[in-house]
């Protein structure tokens, strides 16, 4: 059991949790995730560690309610307990002095890129964040990223804030006009696929933080396998970060729909307005 030290709504359907997990906080490195279970019959779901505070002994999770488990989790408040929390899992993101790095975050993926932005900035890179959401009210982590990045380029689908358009439009301008040394993307699959296509003609090394369906998160089931350069890799062991130019995003998209009907039924059990359908924020498709 892990106690929730702080819970607050960031934007509609997205909640931030600071959770007591001193050992995980001490070991965490950017790019890693935890596996969470919220009820005795509950599913094990992966969530990125959005920040860690070793002194306070806490980690931060940012959760978008998309289905039953995330909806149940987002109903928890400060002082409540999370039943199971295991981590940190996954291979940490590669952090080095690359030069100029653009981190691209779509929707809740913005929070996923945050720890990498911090680490890349500390490693002496110029870090530019390109973040996207449906509208101003859905934009996440803008102030947090502004504090650690050299520039932040917000984009909204409806033009209510920042650039009117997709994150890939802003990214296309950046790679065309600046010497970008590396791109890191996290968000909906369609967005990550579009980011890969945007940078491919420029040969900019591009990494995507993949989100396949997981069970154990420790290499035991193989359910999280993704095809990278034609080779199967387990995202929980060797990822979640992979070379975006080699990832088979179509396959990932298909596999993540494996239980679509079942999941919708479970979500509906929670009531009609319990959660919104998965919204492809900031995607180029």
């Amino acid at each position: 059991m892990s106690t929730i030290l702080e819970a607050r709504v960031l934007v509609p359907d997205v909640k931030l949790f600071r959770v007591h997990a001193p050992k995980i906080a001490r070991k965490h490195r950017a790019g890693q995730f935890v596996i969470v279970r919220v009820s005795p019959d509950g599913e094990r779901i992966p969530l990125t560690i959005a920040a860690a505070d070793p002194e306070a002994g806490s980690i931060t999770l940012v959760v978008q309610a998309v289905g039953k488990t995330t909806t149940l989790l987002n109903a928890l408040e400060t002082g409540d307990e999370i039943l199971d929390l295991a981590g940190p899992l996954g291979t940490p993101s590669e952090v080095a002095r690359f030069g100029m790095v653009v981190v691209v975050g779509g929707g809740v993926g913005t929070a996923v890129t945050y720890p990498s932005a911090v680490a890349l900035s500390q490693a002496g890179n110029t870090v530019i964040a390109v973040i996207g959401a449906r509208s101003r009210t859905h934009l996440l982590f803008e102030t947090e990223l502004a504090a650690v990045c050299d520039e932040v380029h917000p984009c909204t689908d409806d033009g209510s804030f920042g650039r009117h358009g997709f994150v890939t439009d802003a990214l296309a301008d950046l790679v065309a006009t600046r010497k970008v040394d590396r791109v890191l993307a996290a968000g909906p699959i369609a967005m990550m696929a579009a980011v890969a296509e945007t940078t491919r003609p420029y040969d900019v090394p591009t990494v995507a933080s993949l989100n396949p369906i997981m069970v154990d998160g420790t290499g035991m089931c193989g359910g999280c396998r993704v095809s990278v350069g034609g080779v199967n890799r387990f995202a929980c062991l060797d990822g979640p970060d992979f070379d975006a130019h080699l990832v088979d995003f179509h396959l990932l998209e298909q596999r993540n729909r494996a239980y679509a009907g079942w999941e919708a039924a479970r979500r509906d059990e929670l009531g009609p307005c319990a959660a919104v359908p998965v919204v492809v924020d900031g995607a180029a498709s």
Binding site: C221, G222, L251, Q254, R255
Partner: peptide, 14 residues
């Protein structure tokens, strides 16, 4: 092998 409906025994049994 990555088609939906293809499981490792570990995943199926887990």
């Amino acid at each position: 092998e990555n088609l939906i409906g293809v499981y490792s025994a570990s995943e199926f049994l887990t």
